[in-house]
């Protein structure tokens, strides 16, 4: 499946973690999650569903040993506070690139953290 132009730009080109966690689109001052699972926090700001699903599925196909929520969450940062979470995610992404921890998803050379986030989105969305 090809991405549409909008999906392509919104999901993949908006720099760093904001590719999927687009702070401006859904964020609000009531963000702090209470009683919500970490995975929900992590994927809460993914605003381009189809492209994220496509990339996430590609990640799951390649990294079968990480194909559960628990194993994905083991590698992703945790924070109940939105701002902190984004900072941590961005830091993880940068560290991945710095250390060469990349994955190739449909040709896109992305950080493993980005790939895991998309994968988590797929698993989380399929439960919903």
């Amino acid at each position: 499946m090809k991405m549409t132009r909008r999906q392509f730009l919104q999901t993949l080109t908006l720099a760093g973690v904001s590719t999927v966690v687009h702070a401006g689109s859904k964020g609000n001052s009531d963000y702090v999650s209470k009683g919500v699972g970490h995975e929900q926090n992590l994927v809460a700001h993914i605003n381009e569903v189809e492209a994220a699903r496509q990339l996430g599925q590609a990640y799951l196909d390649v990294y079968e040993d990480e194909a559960t929520k628990d194993s994905l969450l083991m590698h992703l940062p945790i924070s109940d506070e939105r701002h902190q979470l984004i900072i941590k995610l961005e830091q993880h992404v940068r560290e991945d690139y710095d250390q060469g921890l990349l994955c190739c998803l449909d040709g896109w050379l992305l950080s493993r953290t980005e790939g895991r986030l998309y994968a988590l989105f797929v698993l989380t969305a399929s439960e919903a």
Binding site: T13, T19, D96, D98, G100, L102, G107, L109
Partner: peptide
Amino acid sequence: TLQIFAQETGRLGYGRIKNILGD
């Protein structure tokens, strides 16, 4: 080569690279 370039452009937040050479 492309991977190393992607690594650096990603690290610096310049953008993302797509490899079109295939798997």
